[in-house]
Design a protein around this nucleic acid. Structure first.
Length: 430
DNA sequence: TGAAATGTTGGGGCG
DNA sequence: ACGCCCCAACATTTC
């Protein structure tokens, strides 16, 4: 079922739709081998499910929980619509590690700080081990189904998905293989390598996880079965950050729209379409930022360290609203997820519940030197700088190379950001 | 999961 | 030999 109506502005973006198309194609094949047809429908979720239950006489609908405000509303409406049909809706933890209603503060509220949240998670019973895949499913009678093409998920004019095809293979089989390869390979040294974007030191499981091709529980179990201490704990912590933002969105449905810290409502964000477009296209003049934005545009994905750098650059040096960045990521990331996109943008922008402080401003030159010391990442995504040696590649304006001039002066941009926050803190409701 | 400004310390050059 | 200065290295504070 593709529901473009209920989510409103947060219907899946372009890159996620591309992924979904191929993920479903893979799922169709997997189900065929079990002798089960995939039924494809389109429309408002609640009505589609109700009709399907009426047609099949199903007595239960099993679904994965998800924290989006529109999804919660859809679950509620669906459950109500099923009652007169004698069917019920059963929700499962799905892609999260812990049932959302199990994680509570002592005062029975939502957590706003990550560390106590993580502690509370670790105090819960461990996620149960994943069940083996079924070898047989009793197929229901076939009902009407749209052809896959009716979803119209792939880009055509132009077809910008070439980079995605080169980078990814959607589907459960590939998700399992990627997890197995990560667990047997890079996971061992995840703690040391994960911050270097040229290095394949991360799992790259995020789009598979996002699209339900693999569960967080399975990843958790695999990592805890075979990865040594430091890297295991560091990786598990990243899964818990994901869990934290799911928790936050569940309790604070306005997270994608409104800063969690009220004083940020008065922040004097700049309206600068030219700078915003330079950022989107990877033409800011700062190589590590441009490399990241071009990786995003071509592969639909960006290394986590670089996501932080480009987000800091947009919200601090350019003083552009984090929601502009969130929106661009939403449309371009194959792993675009409402809770994690909003949560991480608010984290970098300093306006989240448990966020990095506003004054933590990444200097893109220093970050580039630190995390891409040989310029390998930049060479890969910014080929016009590939000929520069490592000493100059982070500051092409010193190299006499033809390259976009920096769109903002770093010390000036930093000072402007600090001043803007000081002013908004004076003005705002604290 | 910073960076820049400011403060402190200690070694060495030098008058 | 001694004090003075310089400054790099490191630590602390501030944004």
């Amino acid at each position: 079922m593709l529901d473009d109506e209920t989510p409103g502005a947060w219907a899946p973006g372009g890159a996620a739709r591309w992924w979904l198309h191929h993920s479903l194609a893979a799922l169709t094949g997997d189900l065929r081998s079990l002798g089960v047809p995939l039924t494809i429908r389109r429309g408002a979720g609640q009505a589609v499910i109700r009709d399907l239950v009426a047609e099949t006489g199903a007595r239960a609908v099993h679904a994965s929980f998800s924290p989006e405000p529109w999804a919660r509303q859809r679950f509620r409406a669906t459950a109500e619509a099923l009652t007169p049909l004698g069917a019920r809706l059963r929700l499962f933890r799905g892609a999260s590690l812990f049932p959302p209603d199990r994680i509570r503060t002592r005062g029975d509220g939502a957590f706003s700080v990550f560390t106590p949240f993580a502690k509370a998670c670790l105090a819960l019973p461990k996620p149960p081990p994943p069940l083996p895949a079924p070898v047989h499913i009793a197929a229901a009678a076939a009902v009407d189904s749209l052809p896959e093409s009716a979803w119209d998920l792939l880009p055509r004019h132009p077809d910008w998905a070439g980079g995605l095809r080169a980078a990814w293979v959607p589907g459960e089989r590939e998700a399992q293989q990627r997890l197995a390869a990560f667990a047997a390979g890079a996971a061992d040294r995840y703690a040391e390598r994960r911050d270097f974007p040229h290095d394949d030191g991360t799992s790259m499981l995020s789009p598979h996880l996002k699209h339900g091709e693999i569960s967080a529980g399975r990843i958790w179990h695999t990592i805890h079965a075979g990865v040594p201490g430091d890297s295991r704990d560091t990786f598990a912590r990243e899964l818990l950050w994901r869990e934290f933002f799911i928790h936050r969105l569940w309790h604070h449905p306005a997270m994608p729209e409104e800063p969690s810290r009220p004083e940020f409502a008065a922040m004097p964000w700049r309206n600068d379409p030219v700078a915003l477009e330079a950022w989107r296209r990877g033409r800011t003049g700062y190589p590590i930022v441009d490399a990241g934005m071009r990786q995003l545009w071509s592969a639909g994905w960006m290394h986590n360290r670089v996501r932080m750098i480009v987000a800091s650059f947009l919200t601090k040096h350019l003083l552009i609203d984090w929601r502009e960045g969130q929106r661009w990521f939403w449309d371009t990331l194959v792993d675009a997820d409402l809770a994690n996109n909003a949560g991480n943008w608010q984290w970098v922008a300093g306006c989240g519940a448990d966020a990095a402080p506003w004054f933590r401003v990444f200097n893109p030159v220093l970050q580039g030197r630190k995390f891409d010391p040989d310029g390998l990442y930049i060479r890969r995504f910014v080929p016009e700088l590939a000929h520069l040696d490592a000493r100059l590649i982070h500051t092409p304006w010193d190299a006499g190379t033809v390259y976009p001039a920096p769109i903002v002066d770093l010390p000036a941009g930093r000072a402007r950001a600090l001043a803007a926050f000081a002013a908004c803190r004076r003005a705002g409701p604290s």
